[in-house]
Design a binder for these strands. Structure first.
Lengths: 165, 165
DNA sequence: ATAAAGTATCTCAGTGCTAAGAAACTTTCA
DNA sequence: TGAAAGTTTCTTAGCACTGAGATACTTTAT
């Protein structure tokens, strides 16, 4: 049993036997899986006239609270992209009538982004197909293995300072 | 013990109790780790006047064979980007004198990309710092846990059809 | 031998991101 | 209170990628 990364590791051991390439066994595989996941998830988004960025915003609003609203800063933290990227994502979503921007009532610098009925309808339609696609992508692992994997990834995230907020 | 994704999962269970969000526990964490890894690796590349794309090409050539040469198609398969991206990466690397492009001797459509001495020197200088950075990023897991993680990721890659070539 | 299909590489317009910085507002603290 | 520091959002230039398609060559099939 060997995947592409096993070949890469072998090559490194042959060319640079002085280096221990084993970290690549983890990070290289995660990067490769990330690309494969992304391609498959994008295929599903495309069916619904969405892209990863728009889905990300709509889904974050959908789960955030009963009003489906959040500030751009909140969206930014959740998405791990810059404030400029969020501004542009919101421009696109607003133009499509999927979210609204309203001035914050407590901070005059602030903005409150809210899902419109059309935005809510769209994300609620796409969500089940999205979770389903993800489940398919993980189907090569048993439920136990998936839990194990999630646990290791959580440990790693915590060690890197990933917090609940 | 809880990371950001645990919060996300809780939110989904509250807003959409009809969906089983557990696949997100794996895929969401991988995506988040990918972003964190990327940022840290980029920081290291930056110290050596490199970016991820250039490092990727130079490293692939470095490990491929004793001549440090490969076709654009070979680089493309290894990198999981389109042919257009490879062309542009090679343009940049060629302009910096780190690789050369020569016509293939067996196929007149083909091109052979080779590391120049300057390219070899640069990648050999950066490589140890790169592996070191990766090792640091994984330091939150024991050696055993890292092996376990690599194994689960390999199983997943194989289930998705990732091959040795 | 020739046509059709396939492969290798490149070009380029469009896209979404980052980084830097501007503008408006709020908080801190001397 | 007033100045400085911090926060929130937006703007924009520059960058690397994708997707579509062009070009040139090779392989396959008739």
């Amino acid at each position: 049993m060997a995947d592409h990364v096993d070949l890469v590791l072998e090559q490194w051991r042959a060319r640079r036997p002085d280096l221990d390439p084993s970290p690549m066994g983890v990070i290289g595989r995660m990067s490769r899986l990330g690309a494969l996941f992304d391609a498959e998830l994008r295929r599903n988004f495309g069916k619904h006239d969405l892209d990863r960025a728009s889905f990300d915003v709509l889904a974050t609003l959908r789960r955030s609270n009963a009003e489906h609203s959040l500030t751009p800063a909140g969206l930014m933290h959740s998405s791990m992209v810059t404030s400029g990227a969020i501004s542009q994502r919101l421009d696109r979503l607003e133009a499509r009538g999927l979210v609204t921007r309203a001035p914050s009532e407590t901070d005059r610098r602030g903005v409150l982004v809210t899902l419109t009925p059309a935005g809510l309808e769209l994300i609620d339609k796409v969500l089940p197909t999205h979770v389903d696609t993800e489940a398919q992508l993980l189907a090569g692992l048993s439920a136990d293995e998936q839990d194990q994997l999630a646990g290791l990834l959580r440990t790693l995230l915590e060690s890197l300072g990933d917090k609940r907020d």
